[in-house]
Design a protein around this nucleic acid. Structure first.
Lengths: 226, 226
DNA sequence: TTTTCAATGTCGGAT
DNA sequence: ATCCGACGTTGAAAA
């Protein structure tokens, strides 16, 4: 990993174009060839190249030029003053363990479909068609088909469209009108509920707690306290 | 800005949960309180906190602990070895100038609606309703309403849904069936064209070149060459 | 390789 | 504060 701290300017041309005038920034070059230009604020780099760009360094007119190209995208950084230059190989064998993704929510619902509704049965998971994909295909207590779209966090209009389109396709294809569509999410904004109702769709807010594998829960308990 | 390079482990609890074991990483703390933990590869930080987290540093059992909390989210970094510690205030008055966004494409179409179709007139821009927003509302040469959804880059299924839903709403509300829906994008995948056709929607691939304000184009010409 | 979708998305703007 | 959509989104998984 290479760290460069100093005064630079940046130009980029690719999917879009940008120019950033002189200023002090941090530039990080990783061993996979990704490059990050960070200003003093914000989570996002102001300019960057994804892995594979493999930047080239050269001197020109007394400036250090870092040139990172990848596919049709080019970023050029010019330093006129460098306050810090660090190179270090990072040894890191650990991998991130992460829980609480949408897939975890889908699994939790499969383990206990009654969080949607009593008597619900999950028949299939991850049903993909040319008009999009839906997370769960179920039947309710009465045996009616139920198409379920699951969103972790707050549901969006796009989720309603997706569900609506799939329900319509299903009706068309199977020639049956008795199909329910349910949007399941951690939170569903009021406006979205109205929209769902006008489209003849249903919704459920669920709150499923997902834990990391292993004893993290116990440790986190102590950890939050400490 | 604070840079920490050394051996650490990270735990996070908030919208999701994660744990990352011991390894060498770069930690960046910005003056707005954002925190980034970067491994040796990838554009994305493996763990982070957005601006406002304002981390607190303390020593505990011989470890440097960085604790960054924000709303209901907590990230804790523990260092057991530090190879580099840098603190520096960054002076940076420049702002990024960026061109080639969706808004630029919309403006270009407004300047010359014939890129969609000869005789097209733009009546309104950015039309928002409860079922979503559409970028341009036009009338064609024959005076028929045309709803236009603009996407920079490659169009997605979601764009089709959005357009379809809005056209349907418009027909319902105005009680008129003679409404066209056009998806305009830099690129529209084959599958999407089929989907659009089955929904009675149209599409246009456009290639509008957008430049940064000022003389960037000339300079970029030389720059790319050099 | 292309397509599709999730993300601790982040970020900015409008209501 | 909430809601909504764009992003040089990135990244991973499936077709």
């Amino acid at each position: 990993m290479v760290l460069l701290l100093g005064e630079c300017r940046v130009e980029y041309q690719g999917r879009a174009r940008s120019r950033l005038g002189w200023g002090e920034r941090l530039v990080v070059v990783k061993k996979d060839g990704s490059v990050l230009v960070h200003q003093g604020v914000g989570r996002e780099p102001v300019n960057w190249q994804p892995p594979g760009a493999m930047p080239i360094y050269h001197l020109r007119d007394g400036l250090l030029v870092v040139r990172a190209q990848r596919a049709r995208e080019l970023m050029k950084i010019e330093f006129r003053r460098i306050d810090l230059l660090v190179m270090k190989a990072l040894s890191d064998g650990a991998e991130l363990r992460l829980a609480g993704m949408e897939e975890d929510l889908v699994k939790a619902i499969m383990d206990d479909p009654s969080v949607i509704e009593d008597g619900m049965r999950v028949l299939r998971r991850e049903l993909r068609t040319r008009s999009g994909s839906v997370d769960l295909f179920c039947k309710d207590r009465a045996g009616r088909p139920v198409i379920v779209e699951v969103k972790r966090g707050t549901a969006s209009i796009a989720a309603v469209y997706q569900l609506e389109a799939y329900v319509a396709d299903f009706k068309r294809k199977n020639g049956c009108c008795d199909v329910r569509g349910v949007l399941v999410a951690n939170r569903i904004p009021i406006m979205l509920r109205t929209l769902l109702r006008t489209r003849g769709l249903e919704h459920r807010e669920v709150n499923v707690r997902v834990e990391l594998e292993g004893d993290l829960q116990t440790r986190l308990g102590a950890w939050i306290g400490g």
